Simulated assay, not measured.
Amino acid sequence: MHEYNYDDIFTFEKCITFLNHLGIPTASRDIGTQGFLPGFLIENGIIVIDHQQLQHPGDILHEAGHIAVVPSADRSCLTEEAIAHRVNREAEELMAIAWSYAACSYLMIDPAFVFHEEGYRGGSSYITDSCDDKSYIGLSMLEGIGLTEVPSYPDMIRWLRE
């Protein structure tokens, strides 16, 4: 892993513990140049972490969001390539954003840990500003799949789609 301060490492480990508790497995190994985001690879529903390639540890919650919002029957065969070719990939991307924001809230993590300046094609401040204004991106879709209800968001009814 690149140079991070103690808080980043502690927060990253907190995220891993949370995800494993939810049933989103993680593993650590070398992935080389594989992976859409440096240091992460989704492989058969598992988030593989390459600590040597890792640039933004908060990306783990967004990657987990992709796994969480797909139907349970699809999770075990989910890969990054499969995510890119899913019929509902745009909606699932927005739901992953809303899911990861809810995870930040639940874990009491600053959303900037996930929505960092180098991510989201330069739109991270738009996402955080929208959340500050309680105009949550992807919220209605998360509600539509039964993970939350609008009045109580960012609290979640459940973390994984059935």
Results as ranks from 00 to 15, higher is better:
102 A>Y: 02
86 R>G: 00
113 F>P: 10
120 Y>K: 12
120 Y>A: 00
131 C>W: 04
78 L>D: 06
125 S>H: 14
91 A>E: 13
76 S>T: 14
93 E>S: 01
138 G>V: 05
91 A>F: 03
138 G>H: 03
136 Y>M: 02
77 C>L: 15
124 S>P: 04
97 I>T: 08
99 W>L: 04
110 D>R: 09
109 I>K: 06
117 E>V: 12
77 C>P: 00
116 H>N: 15
114 V>Q: 03
120 Y>T: 10
131 C>I: 03
122 G>S: 05
104 C>W: 02
84 A>T: 11
79 T>S: 15
102 A>T: 01
136 Y>C: 00
92 E>S: 13
128 T>K: 03
132 D>M: 06
110 D>M: 01
88 N>A: 13
105 S>T: 14
107 L>V: 06
98 A>K: 02
88 N>M: 13
120 Y>P: 09
114 V>W: 11
114 V>H: 03
92 E>I: 08
82 A>I: 14
122 G>P: 05
83 I>N: 02
86 R>D: 10
106 Y>G: 02
109 I>A: 02
101 Y>W: 13
111 P>S: 05
136 Y>N: 06
100 S>C: 05
84 A>H: 09
79 T>R: 09
113 F>M: 10
129 D>H: 05
96 A>T: 08
108 M>H: 14
121 R>P: 05
111 P>C: 08
115 F>A: 00
127 I>N: 04
101 Y>T: 00
121 R>C: 08
